[in-house]
């Protein structure tokens, strides 16, 4: 009985825990630059979608600038909401928030 068997017991338990708890997913902090790029992409995307939809509906209904203006306003609102949600994700550091946004990453965009 050279080795202490109780020591072995703890070592076996440790090995078991190591086998189970291995996670490769880490979380990095978002950098300021990364956040800025992310927001820019989000806003540009919002703008692009709303301009496209506005022009398309205007073209279909022949209502010239009406829907373009409406969609621009709505699109900006949606863009801001997406940005806020993305920012919420970043600061909370979790996915649990609603609709949009992404995991917190350095230079996400």
């Amino acid at each position: 009985m050279a080795d202490d068997p109780s020591d072995l017991e703890t070592r076996i338990a440790a090995a078991r825990k190591k086998g189970r708890g291995s996670r490769t997913t880490g979380k990095a902090q978002a950098s300021g630059y990364g956040m800025a790029v992310r927001m820019a992409v989000e806003m540009v995307a919002a703008l692009a979608v709303s301009v496209f939809l506005g022009l398309w509906i205007d073209g279909e209904l022949d209502t010239a600038p009406l829907f373009l203006v409406i969609f621009l306003v709505l699109g900006m609102a949606a863009g801001v909401i997406n940005v806020v949600r993305a920012a919420g994700m970043m600061t909370r550091g979790s996915r649990s928030g609603p609709a949009d946004g992404e995991g917190d990453r350095t230079r996400g965009d």
Binding site: V41, E42, V44, A45, A46, A48, V49, S50, L53, F71, L74, G75, A77, A78, G79, I81, N82, A99, D100
Partner: peptide, 9 residues
């Protein structure tokens, strides 16, 4: 709109 923006962004 926010949903439609997703694929674009």
């Amino acid at each position: 709109l926010s949903y439609l923006i997703r694929p674009v962004s």
